[in-house]
């Protein structure tokens, strides 16, 4: 019983972070039909930015979000304006050119980090890194709680922006149908720039949060990129709720296998990949597809 509670609480905490990580990918895909392979590189850069702020200016990692988010938003907009916009527009499915281009951006970022910070493994050690508190009888690390709090906050803000502001409506409109949005007077190019900025900012935020929990190198982020893909494939791209649900399913699966089976933790990355392929093959529309299917069956 206690173990089951452990699993649920830990999955819940991990899911917050996973959702933040995946959302950056989802918003860019939704608006532009581009799979941002540079996502992993941006997360890595977020971790290193936080690290630099922490070591040189002794800014608390969680406080560094105030710097990281606007900085990465601006970086994302700049990347869109200088490079991504020049690509031929993707149709309803993402183009190979955009994938490979952003792959190139990822390589450049990764090797920039090797030059700037060397290949050594770094980690951020604060006064509360090793502290833990008791939550529903489960020992939970203070950083994990902070990470969950920040993730939940960011997703709430996002949900508010998407549903209560003009910008959010425009983003959703372009996601649903670009041409119809253009016809209704939405400046799709500007919305794309903003969406790329938001996606990059979320990746940077995820990087900051990851840096408080894990050690990192310039090669950091690849396994998290796969997790993020897995989540958006599971949760669909249409809603923050879907992404959160996908994140929870993945986190639960990871925690359950870690707690109840003999699968070594080193194989965890293979797990998210397996889930990714199984979902893509069995349930190409993800969890929303499943609920739709159940709906049709009940009626039919």
């Amino acid at each position: 019983m206690q173990q089951a509670l452990d699993v649920v609480v830990n999955s819940f905490l991990a899911a917050g972070l996973y959702a933040t990580m995946a959302y950056g990918l989802a918003v860019i895909y939704g608006v532009m039909r581009i799979i941002n392979l540079a996502h992993a590189g941006i997360m890595m850069l977020g971790a290193y930015t936080t690290f630099t702020l922490f070591t040189h200016f002794s800014i608390d990692p969680f406080l560094s979000i105030v710097v990281v988010v606007p900085l990465f938003f601006a970086g994302g907009v700049a990347l869109y304006r200088t490079v991504v916009r020049r690509l031929p527009r993707s149709g309803s499915t993402p183009s190979m050119e955009s994938l490979l281009l952003l792959f190139g951006v990822w390589l450049v970022l990764q090797n920039l980090a090797y030059v700037l910070w060397s290949g050594d493994t770094q980690s951020i050690l604060t006064s509360y890194t090793l502290k833990s508190v008791s939550l529903l009888g489960v020992r939970v690390g203070v950083p994990s709680l902070g990470v969950f709090g920040m993730s939940a906050l960011s997703l709430l803000v996002l949900e508010f922006v998407l549903h209560r502001t003009y910008l959010g409506k425009a983003i959703r409109a372009v996601t649903q149908n670009r041409d119809a949005a253009l016809l209704s007077g939405v400046d799709a190019d500007r919305i794309s720039a903003v969406a790329f900025g938001v996606g990059t900012a979320f990746a940077g935020l995820a990087g900051t949060l990851l840096s408080t929990l894990f050690a990192f190198t310039p090669d950091f982020g690849r396994s998290f990129l796969l997790k993020a893909f897995c989540i958006i494939v599971l949760g669909g791209l249409e809603s923050v709720t879907g992404v959160a649900a996908g994140a929870f399913v993945l986190a639960l699966l990871e925690n359950v296998t870690a707690a109840y089976t003999a699968v070594p933790t080193s194989l965890q990355d293979a797990l998210s990949f397996t889930l990714l392929v199984v979902t893509l093959v069995v349930l190409p529309q993800g969890l929303p597809g499943l609920s739709r299917l159940a709906h049709v069956r009940r009626r039919g």
């Binding site: 799979i35 183009s95 796969l226 070594p264 080193s266 990355d269």
Partner: peptide, 23 residues
Amino acid sequence: LRGPYFTIATIGVGEAVRVVASS
């Protein structure tokens, strides 16, 4: 899977094989 989805799955295959080989 088609196009980029196939590409992503192959990143996963490479990762999974490396992880399994290391263990």
